[in-house]
Design a protein around this nucleic acid. Structure first.
Lengths: 200, 200
DNA sequence: TGACTTTACGCACGATCGTTCTATTTTAGG
DNA sequence: CCTAAAATAGAACGATCGTGCGTAAAGTCA
């Protein structure tokens, strides 16, 4: 646990709990009362750290984005350019939605459904992060084209769109049926995607 | 508007509003007070129709399932067996999530994210409806194999999984970026899927 | 039309919501 | 150690939540 002043530490702890709760109850479902009870603080003591519920929600999204970069994007950037890096991104991505600190599944999916028709800073931040992620995926694919791992006329944005779809489908279907089977199907879908991307 | 007793009529009207609200605010976000104000009734008068909030949520899901069958499944069953029917299912499906009575997008996506970690009758009903839909998709694909439109060794359940993923991805991505572009990408993805299903 | 059932309303309840105050405790630095 | 600052707690607010109860209005059918 990263050390800092007392306030920073508790804020960080609270955000961890808040993130977990948000995946199960949604951003709106994370009430100050429930969160306070969950971390063993008073409502007002906890509230002082965020000044408003909207700020709390923004902080949750920022925390999630930071963890996503640390757990999914950054490690993949250490892999060789091209298809290996694309595969690493996807591997880390599939592992991401199974993280212990997100018992309700990927926070971005939960927040996406909740915020998509609720204009405001929270929605703006979420949309920005997802656009960013999509362009990261497309960028990795473009590099794979440069490295001649993928064919020259590949529509990298279309590929990013389809990878995004498979991942979101995985997130849903693993909760409807057998999770292991859903993961196998998702991986099969990715392989078919990449096979097609390689073909001349 | 289907006529019936007074009670049935208002109940039906209320359910329509409730369904719309649920797509924007989630099932939990449809409070008795907001819904009553929305249809111009008193809280208690409206509440009498459903006896509990959980019953209201179940009624919303049933209403949605009935409309889904009427708007997506039934019309497609009139199309010729095989690939035409598969395509009709997908066409209707894409139109479904743009219906005016669902301003917040497909209710099943919203409810899915909300209920997936909340055991109970509502979740059970939703999971059942989605499994049902998946097997309808797989069944249509299997018929297409029988009709020799799709290749004999096609994994129809895998195909259903991937179609489901593309549709859910479309639902998300149309709200992040340009909806028309998202639809074009989704349709491209479907075509690639079917091209692969046809190939020997 | 009269009798009866269905439907809707008004009111109240305890609980919880987000938020604001003030007071108290705990931490950090000279 | 002492003190200024930071962190937490307690209590209260108006609002809204889901849900009952008793009553008035509206619909239904002989």
């Amino acid at each position: 646990m990263a050390a800092g002043t007392k306030g920073e530490d508790t804020r960080s702890t609270v955000l961890g709990s808040a993130l977990s709760l948000a995946t199960q109850l949604g951003l709106e479902g994370v009430t100050i009362g429930k969160l306070a009870e969950h971390v063993g603080m008073s409502k007002s003591g906890l509230f002082a750290h965020f000044a408003s519920k909207e700020n709390l929600q923004l902080a949750i999204l920022d925390e999630a984005a930071a963890r996503f970069v640390a757990l999914v994007v950054a490690p993949a950037l250490k892999k060789p350019r091209g298809e290996p890096r694309v595969r690493a991104l996807v591997d880390n991505w599939l592992a991401w939605s199974k993280q212990d600190f997100m018992p309700g599944g990927c926070i971005f999916v939960v927040a996406g459904v909740e915020l998509d028709d609720r204009p405001g800073p929270a929605r703006d931040r979420l949309v920005a992060s997802q656009k960013d992620w999509l362009s990261t995926l497309a960028g990795a694919a473009r590099i794979a084209v440069e490295e001649k791992h993928f064919r020259k006329d590949l529509d990298t944005e279309q590929l990013a769109h389809e990878m995004y779809s498979i991942a979101i489908g995985y997130h849903f279907l693993r909760r409807i049926g057998d999770p292991a089977r859903a993961e196998r199907r998702a991986r099969t879908a990715f392989e078919r995607l990449w096979t097609d991307a390689r073909a001349t």
